[in-house]
């Protein structure tokens, strides 16, 4: 039982690592998880523990925050302190400008955002992504994300290497990532 859990976390991490290394590609955390809540809990178990903290982007993200905290045993913190921030309903409601983005000496001391969205696809978006992990360019599509988020993220990541990295988690438990190193051109969504 325990061992199966551990191995599932190892597998989930490989997917997260693959997603972050190849921005805009779609991955599944586990073959046996096909829903958003299950995937969020698995992500939490894979990455978080009592040494880090989570916060919700908005007040109504409370249930997601509870899911994460319960699955991982991590602490719940203020938005400006949190290591992980969950943005339910496809929007941070402007919270992106208030989360930790790291310091010049320690750009890694930034928050990681997890957006809960409707669906993710590797193609079909109207913005063009370039940068590390992308051969040429990619135009992934994230449905159910507030179009204003792209501009907010661009703003937060304008001082590279300071910035934030994001995961998009969709209704069927699939995941897509955008690290701060990715440049996004054109498009509003």
């Amino acid at each position: 039982m325990n061992r199966a859990f551990t191995i599932e976390e190892h597998g989930a991490f490989r997917s997260l690592l693959d997603a972050m290394s190849r921005p805009g590609t779609v991955h599944r955390l586990s073959d046996s998880v096909a829903d958003r809540d299950g995937a969020l809990a698995l992500l939490a178990r894979t990455l978080l523990d009592a040494e880090v903290s989570v916060a919700g982007a908005a007040a109504d993200d409370e249930p997601s925050v509870r899911t994460v905290a319960r699955a991982s045993g991590c602490r719940v913190a203020e938005l400006s302190e949190a290591d992980f921030v969950v943005a339910g309903r496809g929007s941070s409601a402007g919270a992106v400008s208030r989360v930790r983005t790291g310091t010049p000496d320690w750009p890694d001391s930034s928050a990681t955002l997890v957006y809960l969205v409707d669906s993710v696809a590797q193609e079909g978006g109207d913005a063009v992504w370039t940068g590390p992990g992308i051969p040429g360019e990619r135009s992934p599509k994230v449905e159910g994300l507030d179009p204003a988020e792209w501009e907010r993220l661009r703003e937060a990541n304008s001082g590279y290497p300071i910035g934030i990295d994001c995961f998009f988690l969709d209704a069927s438990g699939r995941i897509l990532a955008i690290p701060r190193s990715t440049r996004v051109r054109g498009g509003s969504r």
């Binding site: 551990t6 976390e9 991490f13 997260l16 690592l17 972050m20 290394s21 894979t46 990455l47 978080l48 523990d49 040494e51 880090v52 290591d83 750009p107 890694d108 930034s110 990681t112 992990g133 290497p161 990295d165 690290p179 701060r180 190193s181």
Partner: peptide, 17 residues
């Protein structure tokens, strides 16, 4: 678990920067 998670978080940041 704690040690693995620490390494994993660092790896994701490392890949992002």
């Amino acid at each position: 678990d704690g040690a693995k998670k620490d390494v994993r978080r660092a790896l994701l940041k490392a890949v992002a920067i």
